[in-house]
Design a protein around this nucleic acid. Structure first.
Lengths: 140, 140
DNA sequence: CCGAATCCCAAATGATACTG
DNA sequence: CAGTATCATTTGGGATTCGG
């Protein structure tokens, strides 16, 4: 039959913009603002393999500009995920390593990567089908 | 001694842009491009609580514009994470729900949220300390 | 080697008005 | 209600140059 229930949800979404009850909306924004950018995760992944110097990181991440690497590691340092150590040699030498907190995030990253690999094919297929069904409809 | 190798980077970055060896870099980019934007995760979280109509979603997510909600759900639909159903009533009625694939991603999101909540305080503190130690140094 | 400073472009998002 | 169309703005990020 047809849906007879008129009111559907319409909860008081005004109060408490964060997560009332138990759903985790708000916390999520926090993480995503931190690792959702273009490079942070890749840097974390590389650092998860061991301490790295600046140039090593730049070579490993492949494609990152000097400016973005600087910004990325600085933000990670600011959030306490990465420890930055400067050796007053000449020329300068700086190494980066994950803090304990930063190391903990690698588990999440791993889970993300696993899920992605597991569903990559399905997603690609869905996209292909969508694009066939909606020619000229550009939403990218 | 000094580094005798003159050439610095400029490697054949064209070949194998993805991850050689076994590290999962590439897959990660895939997921992040999908859920790393400003709204996708919030929409997914809301849909995880049950099917929603367009307006319901907009009210629930709180802050999202009509335009961005449209774009977000369209992309999720394209990737096969969300199923969009149009009822040819008047006025129009459309509902959105997670596909099985989309539902599976909620576990990741949950893990992300949990981690975030668990470390939120530590991160806030780290930021505060950093900002105190680096006054006027804006890296946001 | 490790950055900071500057300039500039492209993409993401927001605001607003209009429509079936 | 559920969008589409435009325009304005903000943001992310690349290229280049300079300095310790």
């Amino acid at each position: 039959m047809s849906p007879t229930h008129t009111r559907v949800t319409t909860p008081p979404a005004d109060l408490d913009p964060c997560g009332r009850e138990e759903h985790p909306d708000c916390g999520i924004r926090d993480v995503l603002d931190r690792i959702g950018d273009k490079w942070s995760v890749l840097v974390i992944v590389e650092l998860a393999r061991g301490p790295r110097r600046f140039r090593e990181l730049q070579r490993a991440v492949d494609g990152i500009s000097q400016r973005m690497l600087t910004l990325t590691v600085r933000r990670l340092e600011r959030d306490g995920l990465v420890l930055r150590t400067v050796y007053p040699t000449v020329p300068a030498q700086v190494d980066y390593r994950l803090t304990d907190t930063g190391a903990g995030i690698t588990h999440l990253v791993k889970a993300l990567a696993d899920w992605s690999l597991a569903h990559r094919a399905a997603i690609a297929e869905a996209r292909h089908a969508y694009d066939l069904a909606h020619p000229g409809h550009d939403i990218r």
